[in-house]
């Protein structure tokens, strides 16, 4: 019996040993895609430098933030560190359905995306942040193309925010105009800032805009589960979307489904990675406000926050 047990144990340890040998991470570089906003670039560098501290090779590649899911699915990019529920949820879900991409982890950070205004707007419309007050001073947001109605500047249509439905459901005196990119939103805010023109735009947190332009989200009737599907839910009995967006959207990490096998150690680390809202804002600030280069910003962040990430890399 004992002998048998020992045999089994030996076999098991051999198997384990073999397994361990296989579990050695590949020397091929891990490809981390970077996009065109700073928090994502710094975070990619932070995680990349974490991998490098584990002795792995890392390479960064710039890609479009929508096309990247196709690249991750095919293994050309290894992972994606910022999957915003609002902006990229659709692309991510489509890619998951096709296969090849896995949902690795969710950041501690919660994302909120909704109607937002910079602080000077409050002077023109003191009742804010309440949505009814906003609706009452709709005329102050009027532009030539919207006539006497107020203009709400939404994000790109492909972000699939249901702003028009919300306007209809709540009977608001607003017209939704969609900007084509985040940069277009920032440009509008920056232009409005010069003349302190009241403006209400689509915005989200965490991002760098908070650091540059203080402001608040408009408070709509609180989100309830089913508000987007069931007319009965929410204050207006016969309409859907008669509520604000959920104030706690996810921010996920996605990876190629071959990563766990090829770089098991890195994958294990990645599963533990989780950043909070202040941490992400800090990363963005290092670049956008302090004017550092992303790789330097990442190095600085890692040096300042060893307690946070040392445990992730064992």
């Amino acid at each position: 019996m004992q002998r048998q047990t020992r045999l089994l144990l030996t076999a098991a340890s051999f198997a384990l040993g073999a397994g361990m040998a296989q579990a050695e991470d590949s020397t091929d570089p891990i490809t981390i895609p970077i996009h065109n906003w700073s928090s994502q670039i710094v975070m990619s560098n932070v995680v990349g430098q974490m991998f490098e501290s584990e002795g792995l090779a890392v390479e960064y590649v710039s890609t479009d933030s929508q096309a990247v899911y196709e690249a991750v699915r095919l293994g050309d990019a290894t992972l994606e560190l910022e999957v915003w529920e609002g902006a990229f949820g659709a692309s991510f879900r489509a890619a998951v359905e096709k296969g090849g991409i896995v949902d690795v982890a969710t950041h501690n950070a919660i994302t909120r995306e909704d109607w937002w205004y910079p602080s000077w707007t409050k002077e023109a419309c003191p009742g804010l942040p309440d949505w009814k007050a906003l609706n009452d001073c709709a005329a102050k947001f009027a532009t030539p193309e919207t006539g006497d109605k107020g203009r709400f500047l939404g994000g790109p249509v492909d972000w699939l925010k249901h702003d028009q439905e919300k306007v209809d459901a709540l009977g608001m005196n607003f017209v939704v105009v969609n900007a084509g990119s985040a940069a277009a939103l920032w440009a509008e805010i920056a232009a409005a800032e010069k003349t302190k023109t009241p403006i209400v735009v689509f915005n989200w947190t965490p991002n760098f805009a908070e650091a540059v332009w203080p402001g608040e989200f408009v408070e709509f009737p609180a989100w309830e589960e089913g508000c987007d599907k069931d007319p009965a839910v929410g204050p207006v009995p016969d309409k859907t979307y008669d509520c604000g967006n959920p104030a706690n959207g996810y921010l996920k990490i996605a990876a190629w489904d071959g990563m766990a096998e090829k770089w098991p150690k890195a994958y294990a680390t990645l599963q533990k990675v989780s950043f909070t809202n202040p941490q992400i804002a800090e990363m963005a600030k290092l670049v956008d406000v302090d004017g550092m280069e992303p790789e330097d910003a990442a190095a600085k962040w890692l040096a300042d926050n060893e307690a946070v990430w040392k445990t992730w890399v064992e």
Binding site: A67, E70, S91, P156, D158, N178, A179, G180, A184
Partner: peptide, 21 residues
């Protein structure tokens, strides 16, 4: 390219097609 400003033409739809691959 001006779809990045915000348009309602073919370019905007193209952006949408891009995001849904």
């Amino acid at each position: 390219i001006a779809a990045f400003i915000g348009t309602q033409d073919l370019g905007q739809e193209m952006q949408r097609a891009l995001s849904s691959a």
